[in-house]
Design a protein around this nucleic acid. Structure first.
Lengths: 334, 334
DNA sequence: CTGTTAGCGCTTTCAG
DNA sequence: CTGAAAGCGCTAACAG
């Protein structure tokens, strides 16, 4: 049904080779160029990317695979990634892993079979097995935000452990000693940020009772539940460090349902400033990741790999730095 | 580099036709099946979807084009859409229009050129021009959430005007007479919901001063700014109706920065319950859309179009009903 | 059930 | 600069 190159040939009398050349930016005689432009317009001709991809084995398309499309964190990342890629003339295929390793593996194969030129992944899996099809097909992969346990990969992220460690200074310098943490035990960033928390506490010579260490799911509900439990302890902490956006959300919600007030009764330090912090009273202190820069660096790195495929250089790990968003959620203790 | 059907032929001695048949679920002799499975495993063979699509002209892939990937509303929709489509064995290509008609038109062409079997669109444009390439290529399109001005299309949405009209009863029955609205003037849903608001006010015989009618951008900032202005009026309204998620967010934020308290000084009725309402104090009354059902109906409708392409039936418009999420944000006036 | 063969629409040598 | 021809990897008749 749609017009093909042969329809253009019929209309212009030129050969398919010439037409193809023109379509790909080659030089043709001015008069032929005019004829071609007219024919293309008239026929509403559009290149069949399937056919083109089949022969060139390149599609000028990159795949992005995120662990959950519903997460605001990923939404933000996707927007910046899309902008950067479009600027370079690349199309973007977004896939959702639905927090499921099975779906993730399947989606990765899907992207490889669609012959994308490269893939950016914010993974749900911890091991690199699922990347095998990409490797076999020679499709470069760049990870974002999360590393994998078993191998080095091209990856753009923050130094999670250090970021958490540094952020903890805010609480410590304000005189807090009884500090609890709520983090995700299920993924790379949660674990690292928890380590940073523990580093800081240890260096300060402070104990961390088991009851102050809530490591569970990466979910609002978990933050909510954990905060409730912390506030029901006999010895309630004076401050809580929450290591991701969803958990921060849940914890804020929990406090609001009690008679405890932030920062008077409980100080709070959260992670990832994604709009929400701005509607919540009091304004949260937050560790903020450079979402835009992270996206741009990931695209940049991927482009290097796509172009310089010959250079089988070792994996690159790019660490970006975080900043602290100031708020009113931390009380200065005597 | 990757294995092809011919590698399998070399390995099994079977013909490409037989192999292709097997790959597409056809019957082959048990011993051949065994051989094939072994070869495929050993070669890590994966179908080249480009080649397959080129000949079949179908890709078992549908495209989803949303006006902004960053919006929580779309994130939620995308998750449900993805689940439904995957269940049917369809791959999903997600594209972001970045709130830009230019990008939207370009993305639509991208999807058409990738030969998706159908497209689901939550549009940013108001007119159907950008859908032309899909129409020419015979690719069915189903709209979600928003209609287009100039033409009927297959569309799954709520009855925005009626939903707003009904929701207003909540305010009216609680004795409110001075009611303001903050809505988006830029897109279909905002305009319709505003009409519903006006219908309700008119039927109740209540005036709506211009100052009570804030129709602007679909953005948190607009909700914030508008609410601030409303609260600075000489004659402050007793209640405000906010007609989308972002505006609701901004309005809540604005109130929190004043000495006004909800619901004591100002009653609030919002739209779209996306997690946030749960962290905000007091709990908001909200108009809630059936996101999951909407997604499933859209997929269902698209599938009908994809299968029964022969039946050039007239456009179908599916209207789903909303419900009210109860909260504590509305005060009963004497 | 299996094999042969002719394309899908495009790019890409290689002559002219 | 232009054209003829080969073929990317796969499916789909059609014969056997």
């Amino acid at each position: 049904m749609p017009a093909t190159i042969r329809d253009i040939r019929r209309m212009t009398g030129l050969s398919v080779a010439t037409i193809s050349k023109y379509l790909n930016g080659g030089n043709v005689l001015p008069e032929n160029r005019t004829k071609l432009e007219a024919a293309i317009r008239e026929l509403h001709y559009e290149v069949n990317e399937l056919a083109r991809g089949l022969v060139t084995n390149r599609t000028r398309t990159v795949g992005v695979l995120v662990y959950s499309i519903e997460s605001l964190f990923n939404g933000t990342l996707l927007r910046y990634l899309g902008e950067a890629l479009r600027r370079l003339g690349y199309g973007v295929l977004i896939c959702d892993s639905c927090e499921d390793e099975e779906v993730e593996a399947q989606s990765l194969r899907f992207l490889v079979n669609k012959k994308v030129d490269g893939i950016i992944v914010v993974p749900v899996s911890h091991r690199s097995d699922f990347l095998q099809p990409a490797r076999e097909a020679g499709v470069p992969v760049v990870l974002m935000d999360r590393s994998l346990d078993d191998e080095e990969h091209d990856c753009v992220k923050i130094d999670n452990r250090m970021a958490a460690f540094r952020a903890m200074r805010l609480l410590l310098e304000n005189g807090h000693r009884k500090i609890a943490v709520i983090c995700s035990a299920c993924e790379y960033t949660g674990v690292e940020r928890c380590k940073g928390f523990l580093d800081a506490m240890e260096q300060a010579g402070l104990p961390v009772p088991d009851a102050y260490r809530r490591c569970g799911r990466h979910a609002m509900e978990y933050g909510y539940q954990s905060m409730k439990e912390l506030l029901r302890l006999e010895d309630v902490p004076t401050a809580v460090f929450m290591t991701n956006y969803e958990i921060t959300l849940g914890a804020v919600m929990a406090v609001k349902e009690t008679t405890y007030r932030c920062p008077d009764d409980i100080s709070m330090l959260g992670f990832d400033d994604l709009i929400l912090s701005q509607v919540v009273e009091p304004k949260m202190y937050m560790v903020v990741q450079p979402m835009k820069e992270m996206s741009e660096r990931a695209v940049e790195l991927l482009m290097q790999r796509i172009r310089g495929r010959e250079a089988e250089e070792p994996p690159v790990e790019i660490l970006l730095s975080t900043r602290i968003q100031e708020g009113n959620s931390i009380r200065r203790l005597a």
